[in-house]
Design a protein around this nucleic acid. Structure first.
Lengths: 89, 89
DNA sequence: GAGAATTTGTACGTATGTATG
DNA sequence: ACATACATACGTACAAATTCT
């Protein structure tokens, strides 16, 4: 997945498309976490704002759920509004 | 007392409010120890940092006093003694 | 007194939310 | 689109103080 720095589409749209493809293809399975915002911005050479824009789009589409302080995940079909993982301590 | 994982208020504020209620209601009487940080984080499913944040708030309000290595206690009105319990030996 | 267990103190790392320039 | 700062939240590790065995 590469991001065109001379955007025909906005950077955030290209990034969103790339992530969407990974989810719909199953490369990112239900329950899997997306790469962190920091990882995404480093891997694609874009700012955090652009990453967050892309992720917000996917969230609005229902493709991912975000937990403050924990990460963004591909939700299972029937996800209760709980933590994706409680097997800590 | 339940903590909403989709916080309208921050988790630490909800936890602090719950503990404050137990103190003001008398469920936790002067001299009583609060549950340990470990107990609180396990009971409410939050991190220790969140627990410590909540307790710090109550300490700043003067509702509790903390003794390193011993615990956090509801202070008597006139706290003349440093040790909340000295019934040893 | 020795050693283990418990409890709080501190530090660091990672991640997202929000606000500002 | 980018950069920075701060708040909230989780996790880990270790140290210090105290208590228990």
């Amino acid at each position: 997945m590469t991001i065109d720095p001379w955007p025909i589409e906005p950077l955030w749209a290209q990034l969103a498309a790339g992530l969407r493809e990974k989810i719909t293809s199953g490369e990112l399975a239900p329950g899997d976490p997306l790469p962190s915002e920091l990882t995404l911005q480093q891997e694609h050479g874009v700012s955090r704002g652009t990453v967050r824009h892309a992720v917000r789009v996917l969230r609005d589409e229902g493709l991912v759920v975000t937990f403050p302080g924990r990460g963004t995940f591909v939700p299972p079909k029937e996800h209760s509004r709980q933590r994706p993982d409680d097997s800590n301590h």
